[in-house]
Design a protein around this nucleic acid. Structure first.
Length: 791
DNA sequence: TTGGTCCATCTTTTT
DNA sequence: GATGGACCAA
């Protein structure tokens, strides 16, 4: 196969670019993966770069796997030796290789978000700090931020009150990580930079080893990651970055799309190549998506075009509530599947995982299968994490976080008091808790610690015996055997088997984990654990044959589907209310929608619901402001009221309340609630609105309560027939200076009449004025253009 | 020490 | 409507 076949001129230019820095800005669907893989092949075949001299960095293991597989199909055995991996896995690998230069030992473990939180809670407890006022998540945020800026605790100089509180927490947190011989995700990157920056010899070795470095999704790199790339490429200067500012959606994780601009500043001589031809979508989908993204500034303007057909209009549907929303989506899919469409043609996307529930219910009700990405993380499940914790204990005796997690799971009479005794005894003796346990196991009541353990001594001794047994076994036996021994010794099956369906499914998850352990029987415990820590759910997304896929907008990046439903296009959800008071966050929400829209090959649906349950409470919302940026001509409304028989009788008052049909109407309806997360609006809504359905009070959860509940909701759309739409008037946060009906005058456009006034996301007042001389409505930013009030 | 019950709090997104 | 924490009875 010819490496350069089927490439357009820009793609070819990128693939064949010579040495040096190359920045490829690749719009959605522009063949970026193709460019990357061909580039690797080109380097090996035409530029005589040995495969082991190439490093390709991605963000997900899935992307890494795919890239590797594609290169292998092109080059066969020549591809062997290629380094392809996620930033985190590559860093973990480097750190293990160079562990001698680092302040931890080679069997370090990696703490995931869940572990971090548990550790943070411990830290706060140790420091006698209140969890309510010092939220663990918030503390971790500060710390993550610091680490992303390469700041370790002793370099952390507080500049405000909050940071003064954070500092000791950060110190202790980091210290605890070290004591546990553990690294968090940020540490993997941070220590790699430290290693390379402080250690000339090591740096030389890698920087000369990697003759060419390629990065995917460059817009999602954070500062540390960019630093790593610079350090690794400094010797040869061959850095090939592919990205798209418009698809940067990981700001909250430290990603900074401005790295794209920095790249150009740092390397003024770099080659910059734009890929603008789209091979995925219809022109109409592209136009709609660009309407949204063009509202953003700070980006390289791109003009996406395609040779594909113009395509069908975007279908907009406004449902009465979240159940109706789900019903609409599932009905649409079912109808088309009856006409021969494949289930896998469809994707349902949403902003938050919580929204998936309604769709699951609707699918179940319709008797259709579905695939769901993420949501309940497999590795995040309690039973799975418990077993992994046991393995961690064996692998890394220093890990006391995981020890405390499972020392009493299943319950073995080692309660809080006993654990405290153990911790104190260990601290006084300057030993690890595990060492104390092992000593107890060995010497029983002759152990110097026996007496100090009080009533818990026998239980602790037993546990020490187990630990000892497992550790011996780990040295001699293969992983699956060890796995089974642990399960048996702790009676985990019994523990999970509580007669419920849930218990059964938990046990199945443990079995699934065991299957994976079996696959690692050759590579062993250490690699198994590292893999577990660095694998995400997208990576494990199994192809569920031919069923529709449900996933978050974030998870949709890099994928494509024939038909895409983007749901929950409501103020507060998309854009999410958390982004209301930060323009940068708002811009990211826009990108998120843009990413979702550009996943569609043929048909795009935008769906919303006026009312939905949040926190189990009904709440109302306005249409997403983003809808207003999509040209009306590109949209076709698919109304509920006419076609939706389900609700024809249920909303008697509906007809009297006209749906906003035009853009301008939609735009107005937002104005009241834009200003901020209108706390008042959210608090008021449920109070003003009579309860939507009278929920029978469930006094206690029966064993099958969950199932009952599910069935009840599924069979009862009727419950809402009694409901009435409550007026959705949200209180006005701040009054606009201009009011509808005012006569104004503009220097250039002449006299006009104000039609609407509201605030945009930055809090600027925006008015829509009808100018008679122009015979059109014009949107005006009042702080910008001067408008004189005439009357 | 355990297991139950009640309560508050919450949720963006994930390597 | 889920989860984690606090509290209490056995």
């Amino acid at each position: 196969m010819d490496i350069l076949s089927n490439l357009n001129p820009q793609q070819k230019q990128a693939v064949t670019a010579g040495d040096g820095r190359v920045l490829v800005l690749a719009g959605p669907g522009s063949g970026k993966t193709r460019v990357l893989t061909r580039r690797v092949a080109y380097l090996i075949e035409h530029m005589q770069v040995p495969s082991y001299g190439i490093l390709a960095m991605t963000f997900t293991n899935k992307a890494a796997r795919e890239m590797k597989a594609r290169v292998e199909t092109m080059l066969g055995p020549n591809a062997r030796g290629l380094w392809v991996g996620t930033f985190h896995s590559v860093c973990a690998r480097i750190l293990r290789q160079q562990v001698a230069h680092l302040p931890f030992s080679s069997n370090f473990v990696i703490y995931d978000a869940d572990d971090q939180k548990r550790l943070m809670k411990q830290v706060l407890k140790d420091l006698a700090m209140d969890e309510k006022t010092n939220r663990p998540a918030s503390m971790l945020n500060y710390i993550s931020h610091a680490k992303n800026n390469l700041v370790l605790p002793d370099e952390f100089t507080p500049t405000n009150y909050r940071e003064r509180i954070v500092k000791p927490v950060y110190e202790r947190y980091q210290n605890m990580l070290q004591v546990n011989n553990a690294l968090d995700f940020d540490d993997l990157l941070l220590w790699t930079v430290r290693l390379l920056a402080d250690n000339a010899e090591v740096r030389e070795r890698y920087a000369h080893g990697f003759q060419h470095i390629l990065v995917d999704e460059f817009q999602d790199t954070n500062m540390v990651q960019y630093e790593i790339l610079k350090l690794l490429s400094y010797a040869n200067g061959n850095l090939f970055a592919v990205g798209d500012e418009d698809q940067s959606i990981y700001r909250w994780r430290g990603a900074d799309y401005r790295n794209v601009m920095r790249f150009e500043e740092d390397f003024p001589n770099c080659q910059k190549i734009l890929l603008e031809q789209n091979y995925r979508s219809t022109q109409l989908v592209l136009d709609a998506a660009q309407g949204v993204i063009n509202q953003n500034s700070n980006r390289t303007p791109k003009h996406l075009f395609t040779q594909n057909a113009r395509g069908a209009q975007v279908i907009l549907h406004e449902a009465d509530d979240d159940q109706g929303e789900a019903q609409y989506v599932v009905d649409s899919i079912r109808r088309q599947m009856r006409n021969g469409a494949k289930g896998s043609d469809f994707a349902i996307m949403y902003r938050t995982n919580a929204q998936s529930r309604r769709f699951e219910e609707a699918f179940l009700h319709a008797g259709m299968s579905y695939t769901i990405v993420g949501a309940q993380r497999f590795y995040g499940r309690r039973e799975v994490k418990d077993i992994i914790a046991y393995l961690y204990l064996i692998h890394n005796p220093a890990d006391e976080l995981n020890l405390s997690r499972v020392i009493n799971v299943p319950p073995r009479k080692i309660g809080g008091k006993s654990q405290e005794n153990l911790a104190i005894a260990a601290r006084d003796a300057g030993l690890r808790q595990q060492a104390v346990l092992l000593d107890l196991a060995q010497h029983k009541d002759k152990s110097p610690y026996w007496a100090r353990m009080g009533r818990g001594a026998p239980a602790l001794t037993n546990f020490g015996r187990l630990l000892n047994k497992w550790q011996t076994k780990a040295a001699t036996e293969e992983l699956p055997a060890l796995f089974d021994t642990i399960l048996e010794d702790i009676g985990y099956h019994m523990h999970l088997d509580d007669g419920t369906e849930e218990g059964e499914s938990r046990w199945e998850n443990v079995q699934e984990l065991r299957k994976q352990a079996y696959e690692y029987r050759e590579r062993g415990l250490s690699e198994f654990l590292e893999n577990l820590a660095l694998v995400s759910d997208q990576d494990t997304m199994q192809d569920n044959g031919d069923s529709p896929t449900m996933l978050t907008l974030h998870a949709s990046k890099g994928l494509e589907f024939s038909q895409v439903f983007i749901t929950g296009l409501d103020e507060g959800l998309l854009p999410h209310s958390r982004s209301f008071d930060d323009p940068e966050e708002m811009a990211e929400e826009r990108r998120l929608l843009y990413v979702g829209m550009t996943r569609a090959r043929k048909q795009l649906y935008l769906v919303r619901a006026e009312q939905r349950f949040t926190y189990g409470q009904p709440s109302y919302s306005q249409p997403s402001r983003f809808l207003a940026y999509i040209d009306e001509d590109l949209i076709q409304q698919d109304g509920t009221k006419k076609s939706g028989l389900r609700f024809s009788s249920s909303f008697t008052s509906a007809s009297s309340w006209e749906k906003p049909a035009s853009k301008s109407k939609r735009w107005t309806s937002n104005t009241t609630s834009w200003r901020r997360k209108s706390k008042s609006a959210n608090e008021d809504a449920p109070r003003k609105a009579p309860p939507m359905r009278s929920e029978p009070i469930r006094k206690k959860k029966e064993t099958d309560g969950a199932w009952n509940l599910k069935r009840r909701t599924l069979n009862k759309p009727a419950a809402k027939q009694t409901s009435k739409r409550a007026p959705t008037a949200a209180p006005r946060a701040v009054d606009t200076q201009y009011k509808a009906g005012m006569k104004v005058s503009h220097a250039k456009f002449g006299p006009g009449e104000v039609r609407e006034s509201g605030f945009d996301e930055t809090g600027e007042e925006v008015v829509k004025v009808y100018f008679s001389e122009q015979d059109r409505e014009i949107k005006i930013l009042t702080s910008f253009a001067k408008l004189d009030i005439i009357e």
